[in-house]
């Protein structure tokens, strides 16, 4: 394993532990202290406080918890949709393939961020949701997961389809057809294991991208909304205070940058591991 891959894996493991332990390390990310706004680092607040006097370290940890949970869930959901579409299109071919691939091309051709903004601006009340449920933490997270997954499955779908096309012509698949295995069984037992490694690589690489998209949406006020902390919306606060407290913008951005970098390096390392020849 390359040292960069190892470092990335260790960093992500440390982040995961910190995110899981956040409620015990820093129990109150939403506690206001209006007397100590934008305070410099001290023993009580190791990274200082933000524009409302909240502890920055606590918000970073809780924000990381949210960002990682959102990105992980979204990547898995997108991989699941993409794999299903790709397997179905590749295995059945013909009209199903043509329709699904046109759909994939269509979604891929859309301008991502403007579309996500419109999706994120949809009023849950007009979808018939109770205000109580619409304001819950679970809904806020589920909503962003759903809209990013809705447009994020296309890369995996294409990969899986291409791989399925080549695998389904192999002798062992034809043998399975000959002994009367059902299409579902063939897809899940014989084809899926052979298309898994590119899906793992693509999904790892996509986590970084999803963190970038989520933080951008949260930054614009359309993703995870305050008081719930996320790395993106911490930067929104920092931007409004940029002249009085420029130091606020440093930590959340650095956290996003390092996490995304780690996921990209890990994905690259996995790619080398699974398919050393494909890499120059």
């Amino acid at each position: 394993m390359k040292p960069a891959t190892l470092a990335a894996a260790l960093l992500l493991a440390a982040l995961a532990v910190l995110a899981l332990a956040a409620p015990w390390i820093a129990p109150s990310p939403e506690a206001l202290d209006l007397m100590a706004r934008m305070a410099p680092p001290s023993a009580a607040h190791p990274l200082g406080t933000d524009e409302l006097g909240r502890d920055i370290l606590a918000r970073l940890l809780h924000g990381g918890r949210v960002s990682l949970a959102v990105a992980g869930t979204t990547a898995l959901l997108a991989a699941l949709i993409g794999t299903a579409v790709g397997l179905w299109a590749g295995y059945h071919g013909g009209r199903a393939d043509a329709i699904l691939m046109r759909l994939t091309d269509g979604v891929m051709a859309l301008p991502l961020l403007p579309l996500l903004i419109v999706l994120a601006a949809v009023d849950p009340a007009k979808l018939g949701l109770e205000p109580q449920a619409a304001n819950s933490e679970a809904f806020a997270i589920g909503r962003i997961v759903a809209i990013i997954a809705l447009v994020g499955w296309t890369t995996v779908a294409r990969l899986v389809r291409a791989q399925t096309l080549s695998v389904k012509a192999r002798d062992y698949v034809r043998a399975a057809v000959a002994v009367g295995a059902t299409p579902g069984r063939i897809m899940l037992r014989h084809i899926l294991p052979n298309v898994a490694s590119p899906v793992v690589v693509a999904t790892t690489l996509s986590v970084g991208n999803i963190i970038l998209i989520e933080s951008a949406l949260s930054f614009l006020g359309l993703g995870i909304r305050p008081p719930l902390a996320s790395w993106g919306n911490m930067l929104t606060g920092a931007m409004t205070a940029i002249h009085s407290a420029p130091q606020l913008a440093l930590w959340p951005g650095l956290a996003i940058f390092l996490t995304v970098l780690a996921f990209n390096l890990l994905g690259d390392g996995l790619q080398n591991h699974f398919n050393p020849r494909a890499h120059t």
Partner: peptide, 13 residues
């Protein structure tokens, strides 16, 4: 790698 991993809005800020 750094260039594709860095959030644009943070670079701007």
């Amino acid at each position: 790698f750094a260039s594709v991993s860095v959030p644009t809005f943070w670079v701007g800020l």
